[in-house]
Structures are given as structure tokens and as C-alpha cells.
Amino acid sequence: MDSSWLRPAAAGLEILPARAFIDPLRPVDLAIITHAHADHARPGHKQVIATAQTLAIMAARLGPDFAETKTVLDYGESLMLGDLRLGMAPAGHILGSAQIIMDYNDTRIIAAGDYKRAADPTCQPFQPVPCDIFITEATFGLPVFRQPDPLAEIARLLALRARFQGRAILVAAYALGKAQRLIALLRQAGWDETIYLHGAMLGPCRIYQEFGVDLGDLQPVTTDRKSLPADQLAGQFVLAPPSALGSRWARRLPDPVSCMASGWMQVRARARQSGIECPLVISDHADWPDLLATLDEVRPRQVWVTHGREDALLHACKQRGLDARALRLIGYEEDSA
């Protein structure tokens, strides 16, 4: 096994034989992007390799000329970068999110990026791929993080409507990925009425729809009070990015019940600090049991932990006889996990 060709550098994970970086923090010549969240998919690279969906979202966010060369590499396909074979497998995090599969010098290393195992109707599920070295995140790398069934959380959300009649149900969620997943989960739970959106949600939703994800009837909450009277929003679900909670925009909603969908909502003190009335434990990251289950399935010879609460995951790997080390990569946010 040879792992000397992949190393953590200041710009991100560096693939030496390809002179490429995975999710680089600063502009580089060749960037391989796991998914389109802003902290992973940054502007300024010369060439970007990513899935078609990731490239489409980047183009919408950063403008169509965000890189000189855009190379599509879809799930199951591979290409050669010199002697290194590069492949992609679904990571289940958001639409287009990918694990990066690298084969070089008889060693396979997989950088899983951000991933989850829980049900998500808006993206392909995580695919376990055997490898020598598995590079995992550890956002929820503590045994206290055991996420409930997302549909059970959606059932709680629907029950809120009944308890707080006459009020809008304002759900704060990350605009890309989490929002579309919530909409799809609500649809799955039988809610087929219009769902109202903050302006920041519209672009990402449109891209999901273009890629064939059915989100049902969506309507923006405009600032025009005449076309959408406030009382029309009573008893309706309104989705907005977390920053919109307590903003001027939120004032026009009828006495909103503020909810937040995030894995951090599992810790009550943190949920309470955010000043919300109903926390929903719905995350796009693997929880503790899923992190461990994934290691069992992938069966790597070595585990590298990128970011999050790595101490506990390293400890758990040791107990399982797995060789593990922390990369301590910085620069990746976890606020909206």
C-alpha cells in the first residue's frame, strides 16, 4: 500500500501525481470538487472536475465562466490523469455529491467528502466502495449523535401545524440540499399543497427540478403584500435560510413558528441558543452509527479523518482494530449541518 501520493496541504488534499487538489480552499490549476456547497466549491480554479449536477450548481452560483475548463465525471465513470485513475461514486450528501475514487500504484484511496446514509429522495444514495484508505468526515463524530428517522421528524413538523393554528411554520434550512430534501420529505409524507420559499431557495430548487427531482408546487414569498397577503401564509410551510430567522423578511409572516432543520438540533442547549421554537433533527451528514456502519462496509485498511469531532471517531476506530489518523483539515464550515 502506498499512500505517499496523497497529502493534506494548505490548499486542501493534494493528489501529487495528478497535480490536483480535492475541494481546494484557494484557486488552483486543477480542482476535483466533491459537492457544490460554497465551502467546498470555491471560485477561481483553472480546471474543475465534478459531476454534471455539481458543475451545474456551481455555474448557477458562481456564473457560467467559473472555470476555464469544466470536465464532467459522472458516477461510475472514470478518467486517467497521467497514471492515476479517477472515478466518482454517489455520496448521498446533496444532489451531485460524490466520493472521489483514486487508484494509483496499486492503492485505492477514496475521499468520501461530506456524506450521509439516511433516506433522501433528492439524491442518489451513498454507495460503499471497497478501498485501501477511506477518508471520512466526522461532523457528527460523537456517540450522542444518533439521528431519528427523517420522516418521524417531518411528522412532528406536520403536527406543529395543528398545534399552532393561524401561524406560519417557518423552517430554517440550508438553501442548497437541505431545503430540497425537506420539500421532498414533506411531499413523501403527503403534503401536496404549495410550499412557500425565501428568495434564496429559488435558484437551487430550480436546478433540482431541472435534474428531474419532483418538488411539487413552490411559490416565493415576495415582498409584494398585495399578490401574497400575509394571512394566506397562516398554516403554511415557509422555507428560508437560517440567516432569515429574525430578519425583516420574516416579519411579514403571520406570527411564525420558527423551526430549524439541522443535525445540531440534537443538542438541546445548542437548539435553545439559536432561539427557535421547534428543532428538527434532520442532517445531511452521517450520524455516529452511520459513520461506524460505513467503515464496516467499506472495510478500509486505513481511515483518515478530515474534519469534525475526530477524537471520538479515532478512538472508536482503535477499538475496532482500524488504523486511523486525523488530517485536521480546516476551512470547511459545519454550521448548517
Partner: peptide
């Protein structure tokens, strides 16, 4: 050890 790390985080 896992409990100690968790308690430290949850508080």
C-alpha cells in the same frame, strides 16, 4: 472515553 468527549461537547 467516548462519554467524556461527549459530555465535554454537550455540557
Amino acid at each position: 472515553e467516548l462519554f467524556a468527549l461527549s459530555y465535554d461537547f454537550v455540557g
